[in-house]
Write a protein that binds this DNA or RNA. Structure first.
Lengths: 247, 247
DNA sequence: ATTATTCTTGGCGTAAAGCCACTAAGTTGC
DNA sequence: GCAACTTAGTGGCTTTACGCCAAGAATAAT
């Protein structure tokens, strides 16, 4: 009976042709954030083809069923193709899909958020004319392709939301870094100043950083600062309380 | 120039046929939770067709491009078709997609989580032979269709995770309800007892419930309990601290 | 009435954040 | 060399919100 059912199922699968059914288009889009001179930037690409030709958009594109084994891999591939970097941090944000967001038909996009440290010397991206790091405010202010404005806003919100109870912004820094640098990264992401003492207590008490020496503060003047490096697995750390709720 | 581009784009779209490209299959699955006699249950359906015939699965299915305007609507439709209820609470959990999860080919599913109050008198579902409310532990223990075991686990985790800093479990109760009932719902979802005083302080201090009278406690004996009803928009409320972290 | 049961509140301890000022250790300018 | 400046780090108190236990209040069963 079980084997009978098996051949049944085999017959069914042999006869099944996905192309007989009209499936929505499926894409992956990635909002890649980084800090440049302390300010939050996002990577956008200018579309060279229809539709929405000429508009800036989040890097992304169709799933390549031959090349990609999974959604996360597809996102990592898009990111790698645009930045030459293998995802330092990559997180799925949400999926939007409807009949109107793409003129080509019912389409679904899976949105990812990525964080990386900006490498000022790397020329991979800044040199390409149609791929640019945009200050976040400028990116959000302009009209992007499709519904990418909303996608970008959703990714941004996930970033600040999660920053309130994790250590997400470490991924925007190149190790080793100082606690002041880390705090400034938090403040830029949250858009609000944080208390120095509270911040340090919180981070150091969580035991998620390794101290790796000390160095003169960035800027040269002042007392030398302790240098830190993220411990493995710190993306899993969640504080029981949210930061930055004081007046 | 702009209009020239416009006709260009029109020509492109006219020539575009989605069926020329092989797109992944796209489905929506919903994990619907409720409390029956105080215990967490999930709604499963038994598959009548290949593949995975006979196995229990989360309710869901292909996007109907003609019928569904958006993903959320598709999820709401699946939910309505199975329960006769319009989503009291519906939240997107995550999206999984790869080449191996469905024998029919590269497939993507968008997972939603829903909460509802169980209506003991409603016969809509309990009567149908192949649709059943399963105690959550039993559902998780058995082998479900496709990767639905993992999907169910992900939805369950989202539920308990978010319960720690929101009031999600209110959606499993029929208003009006008592604070004790609400606390019991929390405890069942979290799988751990909570402190009565802390719980009440927290909930009442948040100003998200309206008191709507009082009634004898469920069970008849004892001091009457205040009855409450959820205020509009309470799904947005987030506490600054997680509950249930004491020893 | 007395007891059992359940809801409700008081009061204190504790964890972790907010706040602000002070100390520490360097660099720059005279 | 020494003051002035700059940045890093700490001390110590306040505030917030949860944990814990136990007392009080209102009702039904006996």
């Amino acid at each position: 009976m079980a084997s009978r059912d098996k051949t049944d199922e085999q017959r069914f699968l042999d006869a099944y042709n996905p192309q007989d059914y009209l499936s929505p288009l499926v894409t992956v889009d990635v909002a890649i954030f980084t800090l440049i001179d302390g300010r939050l930037h996002v990577l956008l690409v200018q579309r060279a083809n229809h539709p929405e030709r000429g508009r800036w958009a989040l890097p992304g594109g169709f799933i390549d069923a031959g090349q990609d084994h999974s959604l996360a891999e597809a996102a990592a591939r898009k990111l790698r193709e645009k930045t030459g970097v293998t995802a330092p941090y990559l997180e799925q944000v949400c999926t939007v899909g409807d009949h109107a967001r793409d003129p080509r038909g019912w389409s679904v996009t899976v949105l990812y958020m990525a964080l990386m440290a900006h490498a000022p010397t790397a020329a991979f991206v800044d040199s390409v004319a149609d791929t640019r790091w945009w200050p976040l405010a400028d990116a959000l202010a302009q009209e992007l392709a499709f519904d990418h404005q909303q996608l970008l806003a959703a990714a941004r919100q996930r970033l600040s939301g999660k920053t309130a109870y994790t250590v997400l912004p470490v991924h925007t820094l190149d190790p080793p870094f100082t606690l002041t640098q880390l705090q400034q990264a938090f403040e830029e992401v949250l858009g609000a100043p944080l208390e120095k003492k509270s911040f340090r207590r919180r981070i150091l008490g969580a035991d998620i950083l390794d101290e790796v020496g000390e160095a003169p503060p960035p800027g040269g003047r002042g007392r030398p600062a302790a240098l830190f490096r993220a411990k493995a697995g710190l993306e899993d750390h969640a504080f029981v309380r949210v930061v930055g709720e004081g007046k």
